[in-house]
Simulated assay, not measured.
Amino acid sequence: MELTHLNKKGEANMVDVSDKKPTVRQAHAQAVITMSADAFKLLTQGEHKKGDVFAIARIAGIQAAKKCADLIPLCHPLMLSKVQIDFDIDEATHSVKVLSMCKLTGQTGVEMEALTAASVAALTLYDMCKAVDKHMQIVDTKVLAKSGGKSGNWQLEN
Results as ranks from 00 to 15, higher is better:
K20D: 14
P22N: 15
R25C: 13
A27D: 03
H28D: 08
H28R: 07
H28E: 09
A29W: 03
A29Y: 06
Q30E: 15
Q30N: 14
A31L: 07
V32G: 03
A37Q: 15
A37L: 13
D38C: 08
L42D: 00
K49M: 10
V53Y: 02
A55P: 06
A55Q: 10
A57D: 04
K66E: 11
C68A: 15
A69C: 14
M79Q: 15
S81I: 02
V83D: 01
V83C: 01
Q84G: 03
F87H: 13
I89H: 13
E91I: 12
E91K: 14
A92W: 06
H94C: 15
S95Q: 02
V98T: 11
L99Y: 01
M101R: 05
M101T: 08
C102V: 06
L104P: 05
T105S: 12
Q107I: 12
T108Y: 14
V110K: 03
V110N: 04
E111Y: 02
E111D: 09
E113Y: 13
T116D: 13
T116I: 14
A117N: 04
A118Y: 00
A121Y: 07
A122F: 11
T124L: 05
T124Q: 06
D127I: 00
A131S: 15
D133N: 06
K134A: 05
K142E: 14
